[in-house]
Amino acid sequence: MFRLSAEQLAMQKMARDFTEKEIIPVAAEYDEQEKFPDAVIRKMWETGLVNFTVPEALGGVGLDTLTSCVLTEELGRGCAGITTVAAANSLALYPILIAGSEEQKKKFIPPITTAGKYAAFCLTEPNAGSDAASVATNAKAVDGGYVLNGSKCFITNGDVADLFVVFATVDKSKGLKGLTAFVVPKSDGVSAGKKEIKLGIRASSTVVVNFDNVFVPAENVLGGEGMGFKVAMQTLDTSRPLIGALSVGVARGAYESAVKYAKERVQFGQPIANFQMIQAMLANMATRIDASRLLVWRAADMVDQKDASFAKESAMAKMYASDVAMDVTTDAVQILGGYGYSREYPVEKYMRDAKIMQIYEGTNQIQRLVIAGNILR
């Protein structure tokens, strides 16, 4: 059984207190106005709640994955949209940490982490979501490097980022073997396009990013030409427990709201918490949240132990926790009834935010394929 250390418990309390003071009071406002939460992220950065897994020598917090998941759950309980902004920075820096040389790490990561700047992970395209082999963004070899042309969509932080990790093909005929990862600092030719108007996580910015004849030096390639798919998959395997933790936070926030309401709402002369149907719903919600957390912590621990086979457990954690988040938040709305459907209470926001957890960083259908592939291999 996992037992958090005294240091982890202290950090958990710090993140919980920060969430109560700085995130929950403004979450509805940022959601309603679809406003980018730069002021909140700045406070998170100053508090040490951004760039969790980046080593301290590179300007990060230097936490292990398990501790990062503990903190992500607390932040996600406050607002999944705000937490997604911070999590996207980690996602963008993971490929450099995983596949970058020491020189690349020292060159590209500290300017982001020490100044509290933003980074973006650019894989998805209009015709290349789950099918990475269909990536059409092209990297043409020229003297000294490559010229990038193409567009990426659904890019978190894409309009505020100073650094992009871009997956492009050097040879479309090679399929996945042509995919290559590039580190692309903000420059002429890099521009933000359409901003998505979203169901949930509205505080985060999700945009199209265009690359128009952008020169990238050869030394900005991560892991070598043709290694992009491997880099992308290693990145997602490593980051998925954090999405699981974020899902647990969203589910927990909705569950806690439902428990509070059930104790206070009186019908037929007694609190609805006395009714067995409500009790059964709450019992199922609590049990599945705990099961999700344990799956997340196991996967995170395997990442930290550098277990070579953690891809299956990572996919399980993300898939199960996000499915639970969708179910729990829906049940929370049901328990609150008409009030649950009203923006006066937070559970409708939790439900809207939960849906993306089943979609981003690999849909849950893809997670099931990853799990099955590992089982049958």
Rank of each mutant, 00 (worst) to 15 (best):
T235S: 11
V160Q: 14
A86K: 05
A291S: 05
T72Q: 00
G224T: 03
G129T: 14
G145D: 07
A139L: 05
T113S: 10
V142D: 04
R16F: 09
T47G: 01
A119G: 07
Q334E: 02
E125S: 04
Q358P: 00
K318F: 02
T330S: 13
G193V: 04
P217I: 11
Y30E: 11
V347S: 00
S187I: 02
G59E: 13
R352Y: 03
V166I: 09
L49S: 08
P346H: 12
G145I: 09
T124V: 04
S130G: 13
D237E: 14
G62D: 10
A283W: 08
C122W: 00
R377D: 05
G226F: 05
I98M: 04
V209H: 04
V40A: 06
E103Y: 12
T67D: 08
V214E: 08
V135S: 13
V209F: 07
D237Q: 08
A317P: 05
N89A: 03
C122V: 01
T67Q: 04
A372G: 13
Q104N: 12
A120Q: 03
W45P: 00
Q358H: 02
Y339F: 08
E22K: 10
L242F: 06
V324D: 05
G223V: 10
I335N: 04
K198F: 02
G253W: 02
A321D: 07
K13F: 02
E361P: 01
Q234Y: 08
V160L: 10
I272G: 11
A57R: 14
L176S: 10
E20H: 07
V324I: 09
R3V: 13
R77M: 14
L148C: 10
L97F: 12
M285F: 14
L176W: 01
W297L: 15
G175A: 09
K152Y: 08
R3D: 14
R252F: 06
N89G: 11
Y146G: 00
T67Y: 07
I272D: 11
V248S: 00
M11D: 15
V85Q: 06
K35T: 13
G48D: 05
I109L: 11
I98H: 05
C69N: 11
L123K: 06
F108Q: 01
A291T: 07
D353T: 09
A99T: 02
D212R: 13
I272T: 11
S173L: 00
N364P: 09
S5G: 13
T124A: 12
V184W: 09
E29H: 06
F211I: 10
V26A: 08
A136W: 06
Q279S: 03
A141H: 10
V333S: 02
M14R: 13
S130I: 06
Q12I: 11
M14F: 09
Q276F: 09
A15R: 02
L295A: 05
M227A: 15
Q234V: 02
S292K: 10
A139I: 02
Q305W: 00
G340P: 05
F275C: 01
N89H: 09
L282P: 04
Y339N: 12
V61Q: 15
N138T: 10
L236R: 07
P37D: 13
I272H: 09
G175W: 04
P241W: 03
V54R: 04
V190A: 04
Y341H: 12
I289C: 08
A6S: 15
Q305E: 15
I23P: 00
T84E: 12
S130L: 12
A128C: 13
